[in-house]
């Protein structure tokens, strides 16, 4: 555990909590892509199956349970409790265009051709693109609430910090995982455009709105 890894995890946790609180406090999920949230729930479910097979640390187990629990709670709020506020018409990204290629790729390129390993690989690949329905929704409506942009920033920051964590681990521990690194780079790159808008607009007190 290094400082990048810890702050990355905390940033990830902050993102998840921000989104849950935003929906809960405003009693609305307007502007939030339910499809992205379903994909994240799928990511955590397929990655953390090792909860049943191996114990790493209390920290590790607790965080996994919190991530999974929050992911399903978010999906529940969007599709059940506050369904009336869900903006399905604007959440029109075709997720099969992500899930099918990612599924194929995880079968083709993995560390070991075993069920748990393929599911872990699937979750890594899927996580890297799971935010696309949300970004698509924002580009379609042309704007995002400020709290939603804080959520996206924390979520992007998390993977960027993990990149530094992997650099650290490579130099000091000799560890590296090519699948995680390549997917992590892809994931971080997808946020770059958003990071630019966040810094130039939101941090200067303006609402994030895209030119028509």
């Amino acid at each position: 555990m290094n400082i990048f890894r810890l702050t990355g995890d905390l940033s990830h946790l902050a993102a998840i909590i921000i989104l849950l609180l935003k929906i809960w406090k405003s009693r609305s999920c307007a502007g939030i892509s339910g499809k992205s949230q379903i994909l994240f729930a799928l990511v955590f479910t397929t990655r953390y199956l090792d909860l049943f097979t191996s114990f790493i640390s209390l920290y590790n187990t607790c965080m996994k349970l919190i991530y999974i629990g929050c992911a399903y709670a978010t999906v529940y709020l969007i599709y059940a409790k506050f369904r009336a506020t869900y903006d399905g018409n604007h959440d029109s990204f075709r997720v099969e265009f992500l899930v099918v290629p990612v599924g194929g790729l995880s079968v083709l390129i993995n560390h070991d051709f075993s069920p748990l390993e393929i599911l872990w690989t699937f979750s890594i690949y899927l996580e890297s693109v799971a935010i696309l329905p949300q970004l698509f929704m924002i580009s379609k409506t042309g704007e995002a609430e400020t709290i939603t942009t804080h959520y996206l920033f924390c979520l992007g920051l998390y993977r960027a910090l993990y990149l530094f964590n992997w650099i650290w681990r490579f130099y000091f521990e000799g560890f590296f995982d090519m699948i995680a690194i390549v997917a992590g780079v892809v994931q971080t790159v997808l946020y770059c455009d958003f990071f630019y808008l966040y810094v130039t607009k939101v941090l200067k007190g303006k609402k994030l709105s895209l030119p028509a």
Binding site: N60, I124, W166, G174, F175, D177, M178, I179, A180
Partner: peptide, 10 residues
């Protein structure tokens, strides 16, 4: 060690 960092990462 290649490809074994994930066991302790989230």
């Amino acid at each position: 060690v290649i490809g074994r960092t994930r066991k302790d990462e989230l």
